[in-house]
């Protein structure tokens, strides 16, 4: 029961993007299409899960004073793993995401969970927390990517359902900001109703 709470808080109550406003750079940068959003979300989830596991297992060995640099090294190692794996097996996605893969290191979400949750909680809670937060982040990227792909190029997951182009603005930078602004507004409304 308790673990379920750790898991589902990442979706609505403490959603990384819509409520906590963490990890906004990749959110805006890669969501020109749904598939990019999901790819980025899953890569971040993997890093989040692995770093949460290592941090929670190593928390008793890490001296308090150097914990932030230690967390950063742990996170950076897993980001490098993701980078190399993606380059080898998903070169297309690797090129699309480009700069934002190494930038997972500075995604405040990952360091934030390591510091605020994994370094204080048990192994199982940390795993569920990482999965919930990661999937919540992926969900946010999925929605934003969906809105931008449908409006911007008139397709969904690459299947085109209009002839010609969509509203080009939503593929470009301004559309990302505006779409995210409206999504956060909708989320505010939903959270207020359920609260």
């Amino acid at each position: 029961m308790n673990q379920w709470k750790n898991f589902n808080k990442g979706f609505f109550r403490e959603n990384a993007v819509f409520v906590l406003f963490l990890g906004l750079c990749p959110t805006l940068g890669v969501t020109t299409s749904v598939i990019n959003g999901i790819g980025m979300g899953l890569a971040t989830t993997f890093v989040l899960l692995m770093s949460n596991i290592v941090v929670t297992l190593a928390k008793s060995f890490i001296p308090d004073k150097v914990r932030i640099p230690s967390f950063i090294v742990i996170i950076a190692s897993f980001v490098t793993v993701v980078e190399l794996l993606m380059q080898a097996y998903l070169p297309g996605l690797f090129n699309e995401l480009g700069l934002f893969i190494p930038l997972i290191v500075v995604n405040c979400l990952v360091l934030g969970r390591a510091e605020a949750f994994a370094s204080k909680n048990t192994f199982t809670s940390s795993v569920f927390d990482a999965l919930g937060m990661g999937f919540g982040f992926t969900m946010a990227l999925f929605f934003l990517g969906g809105v931008r792909e449908i409006l911007g190029s008139g397709s969904f997951l690459g299947f085109k359902f209009i002839s010609g182009d969509g509203i080009l603005l939503f593929i470009l930078a301004p559309g990302a900001f505006i779409a995210l602004g409206y999504l956060i507004m909708i989320m505010n409304k939903i959270n207020k109703k359920t609260a």
Partner: peptide, 21 residues
């Protein structure tokens, strides 16, 4: 009310980005 704070900030940022385009 539900636009206050961050959502409206994002929309302003969008308009600013449009200007920079």
């Amino acid at each position: 009310e539900s636009m206050r704070g961050v959502p409206i900030a994002f929309i302003i940022a969008g308009l600013l980005a449009m200007a920079f385009m």
